[in-house]
Simulated scan of single mutants.
Amino acid sequence: MERDLLAARELAAGLAVRAGRLQLERRDTLKMGAPKAHVNDVVSDVDIDSERLIVDALLQQWPDDAVQAEEGHGRPGTSGWSWIVDPLDGTRNYVSRTGPWSVCIALYQGDQPRMAVVHDPAADETFSAVDGRGALLNGEPIAASSEPELEKALVGVSFQPNPRTKDRAGRVIRQLLPLAGDIRRIPAALNLVYLAAGRLDGGLALDTNLWDIAAGALIAREAGVVLGGHGPEFTTELTIGSGPALWPTLSEQVREVA
C-alpha cells in the first residue's frame, strides 16, 4: 500500500508542535505518576496526554495502522504501516527544568523507517526526514559534521539511568573523555538530530527503546550520519553515530568498552 509520505510528515510535524505547545503550557501544573521500570524512569500526566493527542489524531487519519507508543497507547494494525511515538523524550529534563526534551514521531513500512519528525518545543525547532529525500530543520536542509579528529569532536552521550546502564556509560565516558574534544549528555532523540544538524560531531546511545531512537535515526541517516552498533547496524542496546570522517576512530573507541 502506497502512502503520501510528504503529507504524513506535514501531519506528524503539526501534531508534534501541538504536543510541544501543550507541554510548555502545562509545565507549571504537571502531575507526576509512579516511576516505571526504575526509580529514575519518571512519567507525568503531560507525557500521557501528549501521547493521546498524537495517537488519536494519527488513527483518525489512518485507522488500520499499528502504533508503538511509550505510555501505553499502542495497538496492532493491518495496513503494514506502524507509527513509533515517544511523546516526551527527556521527561526528567522537562520536569526538573534542567535541559532539553523533544516530541518524536516515526512511520515505518514493515521494518523500514520511511518518515520521521523530532520537535524541540523550547527551541521551536522541528527536525524531519522522508526516506531518500534528505533531512530538514524547520524546512531547511541539514548535514552531518565533517570533523575528522576525535580530539576536536563534540560527542553526545545518551543512556538509561538504571544501575546497569550507568555502569556501561561510566566505562564509555572514562574511555572517551580524555580523547574527545568534549562530551554532552542529552536525550537520545536530540542526540541523533544534533548529529544530523552538525552540532555534534559524534554521539552514542546505550540501552534505549525503539521510540527513543526511531525518528532521530532516520533523520540522522538522511543527513549523512553513519550509524552502527557492535556490528554494522545500530541497535537499542548500542547506537553509535558520526560523520564519515570521524566514524572509524569513534566507533573503535566506543566498541572497545561499551
Rank of each mutant, 00 (worst) to 15 (best):
M1C: 09
R3D: 09
R3V: 15
A7D: 15
R9Y: 01
E10A: 15
A13M: 08
L15E: 02
A16N: 05
E25H: 07
E25Q: 11
A37C: 01
A37D: 13
A37H: 01
V39Q: 13
S44C: 12
A69H: 03
E71L: 02
G72M: 05
G74I: 00
P76N: 12
W81G: 08
I84T: 11
D89C: 03
T91C: 04
N93G: 12
Y94W: 02
R97P: 05
I105E: 00
R114C: 15
A116T: 10
A122H: 03
E125R: 06
A129F: 10
G132S: 07
R133I: 03
G134H: 13
L137T: 13
S145T: 12
E147A: 01
E147K: 08
A153P: 00
N162H: 15
N162V: 09
G181E: 08
I183N: 06
I183Y: 11
A188D: 01
A188H: 02
N191R: 08
V193T: 15
G198W: 09
G202M: 03
A205L: 11
L210G: 02
W211F: 09
A217M: 05
I219R: 14
A223V: 07
G224P: 06
V226D: 08
G228S: 13
P232R: 13
F234L: 11
T235N: 07
T236M: 00
Q253Y: 03
V257L: 10
